[in-house]
């Protein structure tokens, strides 16, 4: 088995012949076995990236390798939960799971499916159209998890779950990842939601990958500093800086030791993400992607 779950090179997707680019010049590598957060504002291209990985869209340019091959040939080993959790409304919960078992021969794990569904106090005889958004999410996740995928792609999976269900299902996901070595890629625009469970970050903004790497490495490579206004931040790479009154605060990638009179601290993941999103011109630390491999 390959040690790379996903690898993109100059990946781009344009919608329509003269339409806009949903994603362009994306190059990154995601090692297998990671829990990866795909973070970015609404409309950044997160869903496009996940759909490309699931083989639901064809790239306009560049390449995307999934589990060592084309997304289309990895279909059986990849599970995907769409943002809108589409399910057949006319089927019952039990029928939906039976369909999953029928269409994924040789992979289906009925016990996992039942466990995920049972957690939500779901009546298996109930039709999908009668379920609330949260319960529908649960069924969609049950379908995805019971497939025992090697790569699990989740687009905004927790959006309509209550905190308790969110906690429980996140636990199921992490257990799956730990038990089977499943690579999980999940998108969200709420960074805090992913901070505790993810170890890898893919920051997408404006159709580009802005930041990619292990979260610990990314945090270690950046420093949040406060200095008197007017201080030169050279030669460090500034991600974002802001002057309020006599105070200059910045997030930067130190190029060497920082002066002693600066107050320096480690940024939180949210601060790091926000600083990159605030400054679209901030250079992406490409060397980080290579060292994390």
């Amino acid at each position: 088995m390959t040690d790379t779950a996903m690898e993109a090179a100059e990946l781009g997707k344009r919608f329509g012949r003269r339409g806009g680019w949903g994603l362009r010049h994306c190059t990154f590598r995601l090692p297998a076995g990671r829990v990866c957060a795909v973070v970015g504002p609404n409309g950044a291209g997160k869903s496009t990236l996940l759909a490309l990985a699931a083989g639901l869209l064809a790239p306009t340019e560049g390449t995307l390798t999934v589990l060592g091959g084309e997304p289309a040939s990895a279909r059986a080993r990849v599970a995907f939960v769409d943002q809108h959790k589409p399910l057949y409304p006319q089927l019952t919960v039990a029928e939906t799971l039976r369909m999953g078992a029928d269409l994924n021969p040789g992979r289906w794990d009925a016990r996992t499916a039942e466990r995920v569904v049972a957690g939500g106090d779901l009546d298996p005889g109930k039709r999908i159209r009668a379920l609330s958004g949260g319960l529908r999410t649960r069924v969609a996740l049950a379908l995805a998890l019971a497939k025992r995928p090697e790569l699990l792609l989740l687009d905004e999976p927790m959006a309509d779950l209550d905190p308790l269900a969110r906690h429980e299902l996140m636990g199921s996901l992490m257990a799956q990842a730990a038990e089977h070595g499943t690579t999980i890629v999940m998108s969200s625009h709420v960074v805090a939601e992913l901070e505790d469970s993810c170890d890898h970050l893919l920051l997408v903004g404006g159709g580009r990958v802005r930041l990619a790497g292990e979260i610990d490495d990314l945090l270690a490579a950046h420093t949040r500093v406060s200095a008197p206004a007017g201080t030169s931040l050279a030669p460090h790479t500034v991600v974002t800086s802001r002057t309020t009154g006599r105070q200059l605060s910045a997030v930067l990638r130190p190029a060497g030791p920082l002066p002693g009179d600066w107050r320096a601290g480690a940024p939180t993941l949210e601060e790091l993400v926000l600083s990159y999103l605030r400054n679209p011109e901030a250079p992406a630390p490409t060397e980080l992607q290579e060292t994390t491999a």
Partner: peptide, 14 residues
């Protein structure tokens, strides 16, 4: 329209 085709395409059915 509802995206259920995507559901089918990710159930090992190309």
């Amino acid at each position: 329209e509802t995206g259920t085709a995507r559901l089918a395409w990710t159930q090992s059915v190309s």
